[in-house]
């Protein structure tokens, strides 16, 4: 589904990703961990097509298509979703209205029928129940004045509604209280399916107790330096990243 090969990317002239390779198959959940500043968010941003990043080498195939040549909105329509580490406020724009604009834009791009307001509201109601979303948040402006945790839950709600094929969750767990964490994890788990894959960026083993990953990768200095199964996350929790560094000495970057 997603094949990243030897990806190099720069921002503001500075190389952040330095030869990252990763293969994600449908149905899989991959956790990505790694020290601050390693390039985890950069990876998510490059995948989603955030302007300002320059890919200097390597390739990214999404369902066989060259993802890097698509506009961000086309990537979304193709089924890619990024839950932002820092969700953005859009004052005055009703959250539900925003969601409908997004869903219908994607459907239109895919040549599917757009949903009318009745159909859409029905869908929203279902998802609100499924995700344990606070309905009040849907009547407010997009992320405006939301608490940190509410913003994160709104991201997950958007994901549930847009039903992407590949979701990148960038530290969606940080800032959540215990109950919210469980709810978000339950929501993600309910979306797990043989057709859908997740890239879960996190600093904490705790999330992975709820969303059990098929693979865990350590991203350090712009590369995947270690991969394993759920057990790897537990070892990281116990030993820290220094432990990885000792095991795999980082070569001088090219």
């Amino acid at each position: 589904m997603l094949t990243i090969h030897n990806l190099h990317a720069r921002i503001a002239g500075k190389e952040i990703l330095k030869g990252l390779s990763l293969e994600v198959k449908p149905g899989e959940v991959h956790a990505i961990m790694g020290p601050n500043g390693a390039g985890k968010s950069t990876l998510g941003n490059v995948l989603a097509g955030r302007p300002g990043y320059e890919v200097t080498q390597g390739s990214v195939l999404f369902d066989g298509k060259n993802l890097l040549e698509l506009e961000p909105e086309a990537r979304a329509a193709a089924g890619l979703f990024l839950a932002f580490q820092y969700p953005v406020e859009i004052p005055g724009v009703n959250n539900t209205y925003f969601l409908r604009a997004a869903l219908n834009a994607q459907r239109k791009a895919r040549g599917e029928q757009e949903l009318d307001s009745m159909q859409f509201l029905k869908l929203v109601r279902e998802k609100v129940k499924e995700m344990g979303m606070t309905p009040e948040l849907l009547n407010r402006a997009v992320n405006e004045g939301f608490s940190g945790g509410e913003k994160k839950r709104n991201e997950v709600f958007q994901m549930a509604l847009l039903e992407p094929r590949l979701a990148v969750l960038d530290e969606t767990d940080s800032g959540l209280d215990i109950d919210a964490l469980k709810r978000v994890a339950a929501g993600v788990n309910s979306l797990r399916s043989p057709q859908r894959a997740f890239l879960v960026i996190t600093h904490y083993q705790r999330l992975l107790d709820y969303i059990v990953p098929d693979f865990v990768h350590v991203l350090a200095d712009g590369r995947i330096v270690e991969s394993g199964d759920a057990q790897l996350a537990r070892e990281l929790e116990a030993h820290g990243y220094a432990w990885v560094r000792e095991r795999t000495p980082v070569e001088a970057s090219a």
């Binding site: 302007p51 300002g52 932002f84 953005v88 997004a102 958007q158």
Partner: peptide, 15 residues
């Protein structure tokens, strides 16, 4: 802001 633009676009909404 660029962030607002990218946020919308990442959700499938054209510029």
């Amino acid at each position: 802001s660029d962030d607002q633009m990218f946020y919308c676009r990442s959700r499938g909404i054209s510029e």
